[in-house]
């Protein structure tokens, strides 16, 4: 545990200059989405007919965006930046020459991304409150679910990056992952409209993938929805399962990538 702490500390110092940027983009980016989609598109939405179960469209989309943004962070941080750490930047190469094992390194890596999503989610509470969205005291728990949503993506995708590095492949699969996997997941996440609007097959794909679970759980914590306690636990279990499986895979691919 102390080792993990040292790893985090190191990461923090390495990235402290960009932390300001992370906080600014964690605040301003979602604010833009709230304005553009929540208010802009929301003005066109017939909330009653759409059966969203909320008073305004922005109440629906606002909480969902916290989880969707966490997914994006988890995915993007796991691609080039992770490969760079494993390869030319060399900070992970040198990390495993310390008593830190590759499994611990991977846990540190993924949880660090989760931590950043936690910060991002917490910062995002400010615009949510400004828009008068939160209805439940459990809102304060939502950033933790956002963090878990981030790791549910960061762990498996970082594992993939480890695989790419270990095979000496180029990063050409990375933009494809962003465009063909993450972007559709983002749009079909249930953040913007209920996934019941999708064709049946896509709806079930969305149910199997982690982001919808993050979106539903975050929304259920922030506003009054018909989410049950059991339903909430199920969402949580799915996110934990993706994170755990990703960590198992990542420990292996990082070991291969770092040649230890």
């Amino acid at each position: 545990m102390t080792l993990l702490f040292h790893f985090w500390e190191h990461q923090f110092w390495r990235l402290r200059s960009s932390f300001r940027a992370t906080i600014v983009s964690g605040m301003v980016g979602p604010l833009m989405y709230l304005l553009g989609i929540g208010i802009g598109i929301g003005s066109q939405v017939d909330v009653q007919a759409a059966d969203l179960g909320t008073g305004r469209y922005v109440d629906y989309v606002g909480p969902g965006l916290m989880a969707a943004a966490a997914m994006q962070l988890g995915a993007t941080e796991s691609l080039w930046d992770t490969a760079a750490s494993l390869k030319w930047r060399g900070n992970y190469v040198s990390a495993v020459t310390t008593p830190l094992s590759t499994a611990q390194l991977f846990v540190g890596h993924a949880s660090w991304i989760g931590f950043r999503a936690l910060i991002g989610g917490t910062v995002y509470l400010v615009p949510l409150v400004l828009f008068g969205i939160p209805e439940r005291p459990t809102t304060v728990l939502a950033p933790f679910v956002a963090a878990l949503t981030a790791t549910a993506f960061a762990a498996p995708i970082s594992a993939w990056s480890g695989h790419v590095v270990s095979k000496g492949q180029t990063e050409q699969s990375f933009p494809m992952i962003l465009r063909l996997v993450i972007l559709p997941m983002y749009l079909f996440s249930g953040a913007f409209y209920p996934i019941e609007q999708l064709p049946l097959l896509l709806e079930w794909v969305a149910r199997v993938l982690p982001v919808w679970h993050g979106v539903e759980l975050v929304r259920g914590l922030i506003i009054d929805t018909d989410l049950s306690f059991i339903g909430g636990l199920t969402h949580l279990a799915v996110l934990v399962a993706y994170t755990g499986l990703g960590m198992l895979a990542g420990a292996r691919t990082f070991t291969k990538a770092l040649g230890t």
Binding site: V45, D46, A49, L183, L187, Y193, Q197
Partner: peptide, 15 residues
Amino acid sequence: IFLFGLGVGLGKIVG
């Protein structure tokens, strides 16, 4: 992907 994800998906609730 955008056309389908936002145009068609949102289209159902936007009108």
